[in-house]
Design a protein around this nucleic acid. Structure first.
Lengths: 145, 145
DNA sequence: ACCTAATAGTTGATTTTGTAACTAACAAGG
DNA sequence: CCTTGTTAGTTACAAAATCAACTATTAGGT
């Protein structure tokens, strides 16, 4: 009854995932933060618009599971920096269609390049098969299937 | 020159890791937050002391890569709730040895049980081999090898 | 011993996030 | 057309994280 359940915090998935996420974001964070003065939500919004074209705030929120207040603030900042424009949707004037400006697209392409290189470096720690499996498992854990 | 680099945000490891970490922490968070009124750093400190016994704030910070101000505040709150005691180290009176009280150990054991069950449920989405590989890869990404 | 640098931990000010309440616009039933 | 309810997005306030400056103590030269 010595209650010696073998439990190691270092194997606990929520902990492990957090540590890995934090560590593996550090260098990329440096780029979008220090070099572009952006916040996490901001580059995410930028990437969504860069990848999928015009979207509303709500659509971005659904795809990336980001709360609407965060998005609202990120969009405000990106608009203020002239990285995107907002146009009221004629059919539903509550929402607005967001689109990157030329400047926004330029920043997106630059950041995307950084992201690609960075991701490749992370994945290089594993075999191709392992990396693919990892992404699959993470997608499942994230509920993004 | 159509700049059609195939890049999918949904495959980008830092993004994927963050989403998985967030999603997979939600339910456990509910327990330590709603049921025990704890913050993330607080249960982590509790677990470190529960698992490794007496430690200083600095040692916890090193093991879990948590910043000292966060630890300082977490320790203060845990001490205030009588989950741990602090004793000045006789050899170096700048630091203090932290140890769980009986109450602290009880909470630790209870939370550990929840964590174990929860972790098992997460891992059950994969084969045993896959889960082991996942933990290995996460440890490597987290720089915890 | 004495001066400077380093270390453990705390505190306060600033930023960022989270939560709830709000405005404006649409929708559907009577 | 009016209620009542819902939805897109914003704003205000509270909670928490981050960063810099601070205290107390130790360590290492000289």
């Amino acid at each position: 009854m010595t209650e010696e359940d073998s439990f190691d915090l270092r194997d606990f998935l929520p902990f492990l995932l957090n540590q890995a996420a934090e560590e593996s974001s550090l260098e990329f964070q440096q780029v979008y933060k220090d070099r572009f003065g952006m916040l996490r939500t901001e580059w995410r919004v930028l990437f969504h618009l860069g990848m999928y074209g015009e979207l509303t705030a709500k659509e971005i929120g659904e795809r990336a599971k980001i709360h609407k207040t965060k998005i609202s603030r990120a969009v405000a900042k990106l608009a203020q920096r002239r990285y995107l424009t907002r146009t009221r949707d004629a059919n539903d004037r509550r929402s607005e269609r967001l689109a990157l400006t030329t400047a926004g697209r330029a920043v997106y392409r630059e950041l995307r390049g950084v992201a690609q290189t960075y991701d490749a470096r992370l994945a290089a720690q594993f075999t191709t098969g392992e990396a693919a499996l990892l992404r699959m498992m993470l997608r499942r854990l994230a509920g993004m299937e």
